[in-house]
């Protein structure tokens, strides 16, 4: 990125089991991206992916945060939680696979589409997890044909 380029960061903290506020981060993120003038289709993809990440933190984790960085090349979204981590990432990525308990499924969540949906929406997707410690999801959305920095 050249020195004249600007960038902006946002952090949204997400509480465990807080269904009443679930969806707020993705909704705010969408509003910000619209104001920035990001293409509406990219905005929508980023908002949907963020919603999935937000719900995963609410449903499965001990709480965490969603961090968004925007610069003229790309939107980066980091969803990080404080555990418990994922046992088998490959299995978790599988469409329809879910570890959500029955009461969550009864609310219409936890269909096992979250991670695969995030991957589908984003231009770059990575998941890093440590059992008993954290899960970190990184998603990138390219703007104006920028190149994803895989680091």
């Amino acid at each position: 990125m050249d020195n004249n380029s600007s960038a902006i960061n946002y952090t949204f903290s997400i509480e465990k089991n807080d269904f009443s506020r679930a969806g707020q981060a993705s909704s705010k993120l969408k509003k910000i991206l619209m104001q920035l003038g990001i293409d509406s289709t990219i905005t929508r993809r980023a908002a949907i992916a963020t919603y999935e990440a937000e719900m995963n933190i609410v449903i499965h984790s001990e709480g965490g945060a969603i961090i968004m960085q925007v610069n003229p090349e790309l939107i980066a979204i980091y969803a990080e939680d404080r555990g418990p981590g994922i046992d088998d990432i490959e299995l978790a990525m599988h469409e329809g696979y879910s570890t959500a308990p029955d009461w969550i499924r009864e609310m219409g969540f936890g269909a096992g589409m979250g991670l695969s949906n995030m991957k589908r929406c984003s231009d770059y997707f990575n998941i890093d997890t440590k059992k008993g410690a954290y899960t970190k999801v990184t998603m990138k959305f390219l703007l104006q044909g920028g190149v994803v920095d895989k680091n």
């Binding site: 380029s5 600007s6 960038a7 902006i8 920035l36 003038g37 925007v70 003229p72 703007l143």
Partner: peptide, 9 residues
């Protein structure tokens, strides 16, 4: 977008 980001900040 560069200016948008600066304004947003």
């Amino acid at each position: 977008l560069n200016i948008s980001i600066k304004k947003m900040d």
